[in-house]
Amino acid sequence: MTDMLSLIGGVCVVAGTALSLIGAAGLLRFPDVYTRIHAASITDTGGASLVLLGLCLIAGLSLTALKLAFVWFSIMLTTPVAANALANAAFGSGHRPRIGAFQIMRTDERRKTSRGTEAP
């Protein structure tokens, strides 16, 4: 039983790390600030949650599991807010989305700055 739980926990940890890697790749590859924040948030929420869940399963029913639950709770409390504040600040300082329904940048401007996040 314990071995089974440890195994499931290990799979969760590996899945969480994989999600974090995907998030990191997205952070590097996505074109503008907002999509990059989206990618980074996957690392914060999905990746960290899965890793913590896996560690909880490995630790079993103990004080350690409770502490991990507190860690998860505080991550859930802070990282979405941080992502929101980051997007807010990016919007406030004039970064415009480059893709999607809300794209504001005109095509001639896009041609001028073909790469990077420096929006006019």
């Binding site: 409390l77 802070t78 807010v81 929101n84 504040a85 807010n88 406030g92």
Partner: peptide, 9 residues
């Protein structure tokens, strides 16, 4: 208020 999320949390 742009910072309402920040304030509440």
């Amino acid at each position: 208020d742009h910072h309402v999320v920040l304030r509440v949390s």
